[in-house]
Design a protein around this nucleic acid. Structure first.
Lengths: 120, 120
DNA sequence: CTAGTAACTTGTAATTTACAAGTAACAATA
DNA sequence: TATTGTTACTTGTAAATTACAAGTTACTAG
């Protein structure tokens, strides 16, 4: 993965992969411990299914997410973050802080961290 | 600004405002000390002019950016971040780190910080 | 009086998104 | 054996958004 054609700015390059309404929500779900297509679909925001499929492919292509078959007959897949994907945690963390400070009624960080521990 | 209709997740709420390819680049430019419409347009990514106008309005409406007339005859405007806008710095900072680590050829943080000091 | 600049607005084609429905492969139940 | 259910998607299409080019307004400078 090298720079793209927009610019060599690290922010612009990051946004080329993650700059939309849905991609970082998938990463969020993965950080929360969700692993299957259906779990992502069941998140409260309700990502359209074709968008979810496309984003999972893009994230795999970018090396942020890995898909593994965890069961044959019937075949089932689990998605998980790679190191590259887990290193997006600080971006999400900063968004949680900003959202908690400036958007009234958002779920506080502590409740989110509790959900993560639950997942493990 | 309260929660929206997608969910009460602070990440989702933040993405409702900032989750696209261009908005955070405007915030980046403001953090770098740029203030005018023309300066934003001249950034290397080349934001379409109608998109730029729309994003500046949204950011103003959200209280992230303030516009002030710094000159009459001819009338000229300067945009600047509010406290709420400046508090997005950690989000951008995390993106810089991630981009620098995982996207080859991106401008290093140190060079960006040097640009900020230049601006002041 | 002509050219230039800043800050936008407008029109339209191309692209992307949202929503609904459909599909393939299998499991479980009647 | 037939029907229903589940997972992980794909496909079709209308609606919304974006990209690109051109135009507009209000001035200044020469």
């Amino acid at each position: 993965m090298g720079v793209n054609d927009r610019s060599r700015c690290p922010v612009a390059c990051t946004l080329d992969l993650l700059g939309d309404k849905w991609t970082l929500l998938v990463v969020r779900d993965l950080l929360l411990g969700k692993t299957t297509y259906t779990e992502f679909q069941n998140s409260p925001e309700g990502v359209p299914t074709n968008i979810l499929a496309e984003r999972l492919k893009r994230l795999q292509a970018a090396g942020v997410v890995a898909r593994e078959k965890y069961q044959e007959r019937p075949v089932r897949y689990a998605y998980q973050l790679t190191d590259k994907g887990r290193d997006l945690a600080p971006v999400l963390s900063a968004m949680v802080d900003w959202g908690n400070r400036y958007v009234e009624g958002t779920i506080p960080r502590e409740a989110i961290e509790a959900m993560m521990k639950q997942g493990r």
